[in-house]
Amino acid sequence: MRTDIPDFRIGSVLATSFTATLTERQGTAVERIPAPHRLIDWLALNGLVVDSCTCAQLDLARELREAIHAAATAAAMGGALPAAAVRVINDCSAQGRAAAILTPDGERRWRLSSASRLEDALGVIAADAISIIAGERDGRLALCASPSCRAAFFDTSQSRTRRWCDMNTCGNRQKKARFNANRRNGSSSPE
């Protein structure tokens, strides 16, 4: 793997993991799908294998990503969903022709209408976004407490009080900053 391309942040919820292909939205944004092949890679990691992706399809994927982020952010804040975002999500969902299939291991997988049909994969992501934004799944939408991130994420913790989109990045970064600030101010206790 090339070192100049940032790693993906893979979560347990497809739609919000997809929005995490653009991170640090309130700081110096990090684009994790800068080229069509990276979108193919992300989809494959999430069980949505496609053979090809054009630049126009990448643009459509990014449009869906931003629509999901806008709608999830509005839902997390208890606001009205942006009409343009709802339209994009609904259009992508309607254009997809994927089918849920049950594996012999009892897991759900997606069968796309053809291996090269990226629109089917986007339809699966849009349908997942609809299910979490509509409140059909057990959990709650929240926004990352990191001031440079503010990513929308789906909190399925038992207490529904998770603060960070990803504890290994945003959470650790904020805890380290607080620790260093306390040390500078002499507030830390000696061991």
Rank of each mutant, 00 (worst) to 15 (best):
R87F: 02
R111M: 07
G139F: 07
I130C: 14
A80S: 14
P104E: 15
P147K: 04
L102H: 05
D105P: 02
T156K: 12
P104C: 08
F154G: 05
C149Q: 05
S146R: 04
R140A: 15
I101F: 01
V86T: 14
F153Q: 12
E136A: 15
T156C: 06
A142M: 13
I101S: 08
I125A: 06
A80E: 14
V88L: 09
I101A: 11
I125N: 08
R109V: 04
S113V: 04
D120V: 04
A80P: 03
V86S: 09
R150Y: 00
A127V: 12
I89H: 05
D128W: 01
P104T: 09
A76W: 09
R137Y: 07
C92P: 00
F154A: 01
L102G: 02
E136M: 12
G78C: 09
S93M: 13
S93W: 06
G135D: 09
A142N: 08
C92N: 07
I130K: 13
E136N: 14
F153A: 05
I133W: 13
L141N: 07
R109Q: 13
S114W: 02
G123F: 04
A100G: 02
A99T: 13
F153H: 06
D138L: 13
V88F: 10
L118P: 15
A142D: 08
P147H: 04
S131Y: 03
G106P: 05
L112V: 00
S146A: 14
E119A: 14
R97G: 10
L112E: 02
D128Q: 08
I133K: 11
I133V: 15
L81T: 14
S148T: 10
R111N: 00
R117H: 15
I132H: 12
A80I: 11
A126N: 05
Q95H: 12
R108W: 07
P147Q: 06
L141T: 09
V88P: 06
E107C: 05
D120S: 10
G106E: 05
A145P: 07
E119L: 15
A126Y: 03
P104Y: 07
I101Q: 13
G139A: 09
R140N: 04
P82R: 00
V88W: 09
P104Q: 13
E119H: 14
R137V: 13
I132K: 10
E107Y: 01
P82A: 00
G78Y: 08
L141M: 07
G135K: 12
G123I: 00
N90F: 11
L118H: 06
R108T: 15
A129E: 10
S93P: 00
T156P: 02
A115E: 12
C144P: 03
A127C: 13
F154P: 06
R109F: 02
R97P: 03
I89C: 03
D91R: 15
I89P: 03
R140H: 02
A151Q: 14
P104S: 12
F153T: 06
R111L: 11
I130W: 07
L143F: 05
A129T: 06
L141F: 01
R150A: 15
R87G: 03
